[in-house]
Write a protein that binds this DNA or RNA. Structure first.
Length: 574
DNA sequence: GCCGTTTTCGGCCCGACTGTTTTCAGTCG
């Protein structure tokens, strides 16, 4: 049986193959769109298929439903296999080289027998590529450069790394005298966990000096485009950045357009057409050309023209945000300033870099009412996990610190207790009962099969003393895949047992993923935005968690640590 | 391949930029 994301990959592969065979572009788009739908779907695919409701999803017609059903059931699709057999597998990688699209790859394949990157490199180095019609010296060089850097180019960058590059550029753009408005757009503005490239948008009537400043920015390794209204550069680490300069009256249309997502824009354009307006990054145009189309001096006005309230960028993923906006049901999203404390933080007792006292001082500086300390338990030997005696000692230290009234922040005693292989915990119930809160996490046996991993975690969810489950899937962005766990089942168990699921705000983790939170919250699962800080600076990771919570449609009411200390203690039953 | 108050065919976003060629095709977003 094949899972959603694997089916999506097959559909994407079909789309790429069809590009190479010169299929109808709209047919290709339908397959790609189908893949995106599957990836963004949190409903159980098996249930949708069984109930016949898969076909109700816009974008999935008879043919795709049929193919998805076959893939899920058989794990293979004859249509896909046949297509695959007709095209060299290596061409998929060739397609990834910047500047190479289906037409050029097809030419390389049919005219120079290029079937993989090795052969591509060879024919570039021999000069054969530059001889081809439609190719030339520059293209040939660019391909070689692309082969050399393909790993760096292909990689998506974690949000905070992209943000660190974007912020000074944005500040620099705003400081230029020719610039009246500047924003960053794209997936950075939508707060995706990873960012493919940076999109800057500037309003100005004098683009040239702005473009010149941008392409000369320190750290730019390569200028891939330098035009009147658009320039593109690439930085040392492979991250690409685009800058577009538009007249002020187009700025908010362009900002909306380049913020995306693509799916959101498609839905917005569709809505505009229903109101007699054609919508693009340039603005509205009246379809009948008789009436004057509305302009916009803010993003709010873009939405208002379509009868909608402003939709926060985090929600613009084409997952029903427009329907919700129309119905007046957009969530009032949680904000960083709503947080009144944080759980799940470490000290020097286990693998943290700062002492209990230092962590408390740092939490106080954030203005928080409480700070939850949860060092590792004894089985996490590699992290200096605490045994019962050291935990006892830490309990006393925390009690003393609180009693001293040195800080106004109340330190809550906890443990990040290991979930053992069979789902039992690293401490016995009587030990756990003495703590203010308990986070239970998996730190080993990442490769257990789905059934065993799920059962193990659910057993912890059901444990009387476990208040929250830490980093549910264990993923490290760009580094380690999530472990194989049936998240929907864990969510159901968490709802049934009043167990919180953590939103681990470490920017490598951002776990649980934003795609699941809306469903979890609808089922009644409470979230806790936990920095998992291992030093005083990492307490600020909570901000990353807030962004992901917003992406997951969460309101302050659905997040435990927006509550006051008395409310939190009451919820914890202490 | 999908969709439909323009409904079973015919449209599906389209403009900027580059590199090639010399007026435009291909790529990208």
């Amino acid at each position: 049986m094949m899972e959603k994301n694997d089916i999506a990959s097959v559909l994407d592969e079909i789309a790429t193959f069809m590009e190479l065979t010169g299929e109808n572009p709209f047919k290709i788009r339908a397959y790609s769109a189908g893949a995106r739908i599957l990836e963004n779907m949190t409903e159980d695919l098996g249930e949708l298929i069984d109930s016949g409701k898969l076909a109700d999803i816009p974008g999935l017609g008879e043919a795709l439903v049929d193919k998805i059903t076959t893939l899920r059931r058989d794990g293979v699709l004859p249509f896909h296999q046949k297509l695959k057999a007709s095209i060299p597998a290596g061409l998929l990688e060739v397609m990834q080289i910047p500047g190479l699209g289906p037409k050029k790859v097809r030419a390389l394949w049919t005219l120079l027998a290029v079937e993989d990157l090795a052969k591509l490199k060879e024919v570039c180095e021999s000069g054969a590529v530059a001889e081809l019609k439609g190719f030339g010296e520059k293209t040939q060089e660019k391909i070689l450069e692309g082969i050399k850097n393909r790993i760096a180019y292909g990689k998506r960058h974690r949000w905070y790394e992209a943000a660190a590059i974007a912020e000074p550029i944005l500040a620099g753009l705003r400081a230029l005298p020719q610039v009246s408005l500047a924003e960053s757009a794209g997936s950075l503005r939508r707060a995706r966990e990873t960012v493919g490239d940076l999109d800057f948008l500037v309003a100005s009537s004098e683009p040239k000096p702005i473009m010149d400043w941008f392409v000369a920015y320190p750290g730019v390794k390569e200028v891939t485009a330098h035009g009147e209204t658009k320039s593109s550069v690439r930085f040392e680490n492979g991250l690409q950045a685009d800058l577009r300069v538009v007249p002020a009256e187009q700025f908010y249309f362009a900002l909306h357009h380049f913020t995306g997502s693509k799916e959101h824009n498609v839905a917005m354009r569709h809505r505009a057409l229903g109101r007699g307006l054609s919508m693009s990054e340039w603005g509205f145009k009246s379809v009948d050309e008789k009436s004057v189309a509305p302009g916009a001096t803010s993003e709010e006005e873009v939405f208002r023209a379509l009868g909608l309230p402003w939709i926060p960028p985090e929600l613009r993923e084409g997952n029903g945000e427009i329907d919700a906006a129309e119905a007046g049901k957009l969530p009032k999203l949680v904000q960083f300033s709503d947080l009144r404390g944080v759980f799940h933080n470490h000290t020097t007792e286990s693998d943290g870099d700062h002492t209990l006292d230092q962590m408390a001082a740092a939490a106080e500086a954030h203005g928080w009412e409480y700070l939850g300390i949860s060092d590792h338990s004894k089985s996490s030997f590699q992290a200096g996990g605490l045994d019962e005696a050291r935990l006892e000692k830490q309990l006393e230290d925390i009690a003393k610190l609180n009693a001293s009234k040195k800080y106004r922040v109340r330190v809550l005693s906890g443990s990040e207790v290991d979930i053992l292989k069979d789902g039992t915990l690293d401490f016995t119930d009587d030990v756990l009962a003495r703590l203010d809160f308990v986070v239970a996490s998996v730190h080993n046996l990442f490769t257990l099969d789905r059934e065993a991993q799920t059962a193990r975690i659910i057993k912890a969810v059901e444990s009387e003393h476990v208040d929250m489950i830490g980093h549910l899937t264990g993923r490290l962005l760009n580094k380690r895949e999530p472990y194989d766990v049936d998240i929907a089942k864990v969510i159901d168990a968490a709802a049934a047992n009043d167990t919180i699921i953590e939103l681990n705000a470490n920017p490598w983790r951002l776990d649980l993923d934003w795609r699941w939170w809306r469903r979890a919250a609808e089922k009644g699962v409470l979230c806790s935005i936990n920095p998992d800080a291992h030093d005083i600076d990492q307490l600020a990771f909570a901000a990353h968690g807030v962004r992901i919570a917003r992406k997951g449609w969460l309101t302050p009411e659905q997040v435990l640590n927006t509550r006051s200390l008395p409310e939190v203690l009451s919820w914890l039953g202490r």
